[in-house]
């Protein structure tokens, strides 16, 4: 099998899983597709090396996160963490239970780097060290970003009056 065939097979098999990660990282289907496209193009250039790895998908998943960081590096310099997350529209009386529809918008409202850290930790199950490696920063930065993100989420949940529902209030 040639390298192009091997790459094609990889993309077609792993596209859905990679897209889902890109979507969580970017919080936007359109941005996710752009991020995944550019990441896979870079992976194609390096495919002769990547395809010999034991876990090529794991490597490409790290590339996704790193690509997101690289694309945003200058913007992040001036980024200010969100002090006040947006009010949540409870919608109906049936909202006391914390669910995806409530929590995901809060995650989306996090600053991009904090969201990336949360996604890599809770969706990818990466350790602090692995996240630091993927994002190209110090483990201490991951720790502080995680702390800030969780603090912001708890604050927003408390503001909605359901912090107690998750034992965090």
């Amino acid at each position: 099998m040639g390298l192009d065939d091997d790459f094609t097979e990889f993309v077609e098999a792993r596209w859905p899983a990679l897209f889902r990660l890109a979507y969580l990282l970017t919080a936007s289907p359109t941005a996710a597709e752009d991020l995944l496209q550019s990441t896979l193009e870079k992976a194609y250039v390096k495919w002769s090396r990547i395809h010999t790895m034991e876990h090529p998908e794991a490597y490409v998943r790290r590339m996704l996160a790193n690509n997101l960081v690289s694309n945003r590096r200058r913007a992040w310099r001036g980024e200010q963490p969100t002090e006040h997350l947006p009010e949540i529209d409870h919608g109906s009386e049936e909202m006391p239970a914390l669910d995806r529809a409530l929590l995901w918008p809060l995650v989306c409202a996090l600053p991009e780097r904090q969201r990336a850290v949360i996604v890599l930790r809770y969706y990818e199950d990466l350790s602090e060290h692995e996240i630091a490696e993927a994002l190209g920063c110090a483990p201490g930065t991951v720790k502080s970003q995680t702390f800030s993100a969780m603090k912001a989420l708890r604050r927003a949940l408390t503001a909605t009056g359901i912090g107690e529902a998750v034992g965090e209030a």
Partner: peptide, 13 residues
């Protein structure tokens, strides 16, 4: 919250 986040992200994905 850890468990909630894990569940919410997986479901959203």
């Amino acid at each position: 919250l850890d468990e909630q986040l894990k569940a919410a992200l997986n479901l959203e994905a």
